[in-house]
Each structure stands twice: as structure tokens, then as C-alpha cells.
Design a protein around this nucleic acid. Structure first.
Lengths: 351, 351
DNA sequence: GTGAAAGCGCTAACAG
DNA sequence: CTGTTAGCGCTTTCAC
């Protein structure tokens, strides 16, 4: 690792000159010729700044703390982390990731991150939930990911669950389905509430009557399968909007047992919380993807812009992200991430 | 953040004394009374060492670089990361995670990690694969995760795929299955090779004839479903060892179409590369879990022990890990992680 | 036993 | 324009 000192010595100049030049703070301070020289030898020697030494003076480390839960057990985490990491790289930051199993462990981890002088925190949940920012996290720049701040003061990034409901239902309508069922989940999740609201709205807009008997909430078990089977037999739906892959699975199983084929006899749209069905069964299954990658990307962009008190530069964004609506201000409280659609063959031919 | 300086000032002693005491290097150098005083005020002021400042002198940062690929698209990543992180925490390290999309990006990321002075690297693949360590990574302590070093010189941590094959097949035999099929994958993966080897061995040991017609390799598509259906109709198997969840799905679909119920009419064991089926269908589906968490944990333990030239302290391990065989030496070339079994109700009652 | 001093690599104020 | 100086928080050598 070459240091500024070495460059200075090599050229017989002072370290401060080198520092000024290499930080591009030499406008009208260092003679251009000398500056050029410095830059060249820096290049030649393969100089790389030592961010840790720098941070000792500036107390800016270029480190971002990513705090999550359940990374181990959910397939969503990867997308968020990846998006966050890509955005971090694009802004010259590096992520320190910790995953805590409880509040105590989390507090410890946050303390560790603090010791390493992270410039800000990402606080990620694995599904959208109203969340209170713990005391030990206050006072630092922070952005919530896939979570809603209970106090409504911290910026947060969340998927637009309502839009998922509307669009998924519209996809089924467009595919010609007349009797559209909603297979929801039993937990009182924001996603459950908003998606079913979207479902109702889409039906209403299309002039299709909303029947309670077509909306069921099921868990993850044998009982759920029986409930779906009963819905099949009682209501004979020809379109299914499934809260997630697990629910889509029950529909597949029920259909298979009745000699029905998805994509021919019935249409199914699922939200791809999980991956198996989408991977194996496309194009027979249509999926609406939650914008995990996008949430991660936006969250970091937001965090960095808050740290630096700058606006987000849309030109640096990957294509899918650059088309998002620009942020409302330097500290928007909430960004809704748009949806991603995959393989929209709903009710198309089977082979 | 209180500093050593503050403590020193408060007590009217020198910073070096504080440093010695707080690093427990004061044996016979600092008077015990004074040492105690120092420790107390450190405690009282909530002193936390600044690892970055320390690293400037020691060139040890307590940072570990975690390099991976495909974090975004595989559900395995979470487990590995979680295990790695838990082990890191237990040893007082923190992980810097980067996920690169190509060799060029990876090299950049490694350079960034080097600038931050990571003490070592974890190089993780998302399925077991023979891997060459790139030049830009040489020279630092490194451990491969879910990968095999092509040169056989770097330590690596991998699952025991052969054992998976043996045990999964034995589970089916124990459940009373007589005609056991193997639904493999088409890619020439280590996992595919070793699992099928284990399958053959288990059948051989049980005196069951090995039939080529009972072993098929399928992809991820409609064609795969047809192949499985043909197997059903031609061979009428009563037990299925599935390479992964996706393959198990084809078995479920085929069975449902034939009026067969898994757990009553046929037995299925899958390797839970993915999660959906395991989550929704247990206890009807038996799964063998790959030891992702364990691999992450062991890899970091190994890396840290290499960095510090120490042996791994088994007492610090979580219970499931402490029962593993101890490592062969300070620099073992290869650790095989044991398997985890879930819900072993193969061919049990359906409800 | 203890403190003074140097230095890790860098930035920033200030003097020239 | 440029160099000197000081100092971020810590470790380590070396006098006392």
C-alpha cells in the first residue's frame, strides 16, 4: 500500500500538497504542473487512500450499517441486500451487515457498528411492518427498509401493496377470468390488508361483484389445503389471486386433484415471496414480484443523500430504478417502490 | 465516545498506562491498585475502544470480507451469511459483505475491502463447485464456502453430498418403500453426482436392485413434469428421492393428478434447496437440509483461527456445531459439514 | 511501575 | 502557492 508520504517524498513535496491534490481541493492552491505530477505518481504507484486513517480525522468512514432480522430464513433478504450493496458501491460506500436474533443482540451489534463509526444505518424488516426505531439507534442517519416508522419521522422504503392487489386482479380480469378468488393469509399484515383492498378496488372498477365467499384467509397447513379445496368445490373460481407462493401451491394441488390445469382451465397470479413455483412453473404461473432489490437500492440512495445532504442523482441509477418518480425532497418520509412483473401469461395455452 | 485520553486525564495518569491496563498487558507493569482504578473509570465512562484507530497501529481491523455471488437469487445465501455472522460476532469480528456480478466487479470489491484492511476473506459460492481462487485474492487468509479449491490448497467448507444421498435413500427404505426413484437434475453438479452415488450405495447396502429406469435427470420446465409423469406410469415407484424442491414439486403435481397422496400412497424426501414445499407441506414432505448456516459458521471459525494462528475453541460453538468432529489441524484443507434433518415423517399418516 | 514521545495515514488550520 | 504543525485514538518503545 503506497501512502501519501511516499508520494510526497518521491516528488520532494509536502504531504499536505499531496492530500489537497488527491482530494481535488487544489483549485487555485497548488500549481497545475505540480498537481499533475502528483496525480501521475499517485497513479504510477497505484496509490489507494486509506479510508480508516482518513476517518480518524474526518469521522466519516464510508461504512454503512445494515441491520436485519431473519436473513437466514427468508428468501427476500438477498434481494434487499443486493440492492443495498449495489447502491452502496455506486456511492463509494461499503456495508457492514449484522443480523440480530433479539433486541439484546441487536443493541450489542449496533454498539459494535457504532464503534466502527458507520455513517448511517439501514434498518430492514423482512416484511412490511409498523416499527418503532429503538432508542439505541436514534441520533444517526437511518432509513427503514420494508418497514413503516411508527412515529412517521424516519424515512422508509416500502412496497406498494395496494397496487399489487389492483394489478394482480386486473391481470386476471384481462385474462378473461370471471370468478376471481382471493387466497389471503391469516396474519394481520399490512400486505394482507392492502392487497385485499386492491383486489376489491379492481373488481369494483371492473363492475364485478365482490363476494365474501370468494375471499378466504388461510394459514400454512393441511387445513389451508382443505379450505382451498372447499372454495374450489363451492364457488368454482376460474381465477386466483394468491397472497404468496405457499397459497398458490394449495391452488395447484387442489386443481391437480380435480383434473384442472393451471394456465388452461384456471388462471393464477401469485406474489413471489418465494421462488420455487415461479422457477418451475412459469409460464403457467404469473407472478408479481415484490421490489426487494429496488427497496434496498433506494434505501441506501436515500441514506447516502441524507448523510451528504445531497439530492439523489437519478443518472447513476440502474435503468429500472431511474424510471421511478423522483423523491419529494431531501428527507422524504416514505418512498413507495414500484412493482416488477414477470411472465404475464395468465390463462394462456398450456404448452 | 470516551477515549483513553479522557480516562487518563480524569485519573491523572498517562495514556500508555490506560492502554496497557485496558488491553490486559499490565501484568507486573502497572500497580494493581492503579489498574483497578483505571478499569473502574473506563467502565463508569462507558469506554469503548476505537478499533479503527487501533488498526492504524496494529494493522488488524477486526473486519472480515465476505465475497459472494448470487446472494440475490438464492435462498441459500441467508443461512450462510447468518452462520458466518454469528461466528464473527462470537469472535469479535464484523463482516463486510460484497456481492459481485462479474469478475471485474469482484476485483473492484476486493480492492475496496483491502483498503478497509480486512483481516481475511470468505469466498462463498451458492452451490458446491470446483473453484479457482482469483489472483487478486491470493496472499490473504481465505476460506472457501460451499466450494472446492481447484488447487486443493485453501481451506474450504462443503456439505457432504454423498451422505445426503445415502441418508435420504435410507429414510425411504425405512419408511417401507420398495420401489425407490431418484429424481435428479441435468446439470453436472457435484451435488448431483454425489447424491446419486449415495442413492446407489444405500440401495446396494439394502440389497435392492439398482435400476437405471428409476433414476431420471430432469430440468426445470414442462418437459420435466412430463418425464416425472412417465416415470410414475412406467415404474410405479412408491418412494422418491428428489434432488431439490423443484423436483419434489413435479412429484407432487404428478401424484395429485393420479389421485395419489404423498405421505399415504407414496413417500417423498427432498433436499430443501428451496423452502416453499418444506414450509407448506410438512409433515407430508421429508426434507434433508443442506448445512448452510453451519458452513458459514465453520468457515468463519476456521478463518479466524487461521488469522490468529489459534485452534478453534469448541466450547464457544452453538450446540449443533459443538458436536461436530474437531478439525484436523490448524489449517485443514477441507471440512465436511454434517446434515440437518427435518420432520422425518416419510410415508406416515396423512393427517 | 510509569510517563513521555513517536508514529500509524490522513486532514486541516495556519504561516509564510 | 506551498510547507509546517497539530492532532484524530491508539500502541509501543524507551527513558526515568
Amino acid at each position: 500500500m503506497t501512502t501519501m508520504k511516499q508520494i510526497a517524498k518521491e516528488l520532494g513535496v509536502s504531504v499536505s500538497s499531496v492530500s489537497l491534490v488527491l482530494n481535488n481541493r487544489d483549485h487555485g492552491r497548488i500549481k497545475p504542473a505540480k498537481a499533475k505530477q502528483i496525480r501521475q505518481t499517485a497513479e504510477r504507484l497505484g496509490y489507494q487512500p486509506n479510508p480508516l486513517a482518513r476517518s480518524l480525522r474526518t469521522s466519516k468512514t464510508g461504512l454503512l450499517g445494515f441491520i436485519s432480522e431473519d436473513v437466514a430464513t427468508t428468501p427476500f433478504a438477498g434481494g434487499i441486500i443486493q440492492g443495498a450493496q449495489d447502491a452502496a458501491r455506486a456511492s463509494g460506500y461499503i456495508m457492514l451487515t449484522v443480523n440480530a436474533k433479539g433486541a439484546a443482540e441487536e443493541e450489542e451489534d449496533v454498539a459494535a457498528l457504532r464503534r466502527y463509526g458507520v455513517d448511517g444505518f439501514l434498518y430492514a424488516k423482512m416484511y412490511n411492518r409498523v416499527t418503532t426505531i429503538p432508542d439505541y439507534l436514534r441520533g444517526s442517519p437511518i432509513v427503514l427498509v420494508d418497514a413503516t416508522d411508527a412515529d412517521g419521522v424516519s424515512p422508509s422504503v416500502e412496497p406498494d401493496e395496494y397496487l399489487i392487489g389492483v394489478d394482480a386482479t386486473n391481470a386476471l380480469i384481462r385474462a378473461g377470468a370471471k370468478r376471481i378468488a382471493y387466497i389471503g393469509c391469516q396474519d394481520p399484515l399490512i400486505a394482507q390488508r392492502e392487497r385485499s383492498r386492491g383486489y376489491r378496488q379492481a373488481l369494483k372498477d371492473a363492475g364485478i361483484p365482490i363476494l365474501d365467499s370468494m375471499m378466504i384467509k388461510v394459514g400454512d397447513n393441511e387445513r389451508a389445503l382443505r379450505d382451498v379445496e372447499r372454495l374450489f368445490d363451492d364457488e368454482h373460481p376460474d381465477g386466483f389471486f394468491c397472497f404468496n407462493d405457499a397459497r398458490a401451491w394449495y391452488v395447484y394441488e387442489s386443481a391437480a386433484r380435480r383434473g384442472l390445469t393451471v394456465g388452461r382451465d384456471i388462471s393464477v397470479v401469485g406474489v413471489d415471496n418465494h421462488l420455487v413455483l415461479a422457477q418451475t412453473m412459469t409460464p403457467r404461473l404469473s407472478t408479481v414480484a415484490l421490489p426487494h432489490y429496488e427497496m434496498g437500492y433506494w434505501a441506501v440512495s436515500q441514506l447516502v443523500s441524507n448523510i451528504r445532504h445531497e439530492h439523489i442523482n437519478m443518472n447513476d441509477m440502474p435503468e429500472t430504478l431511474a424510471s421511478l418518480p423522483p423523491l419529494g425532497g431531501p428527507y422524504p418520509a416514505k418512498i413507495h417502490c414500484p412493482l416488477i412483473y414477470k411472465e404475464s401469461l395468465v390463462g394462456g395455452e398450456t404448452d
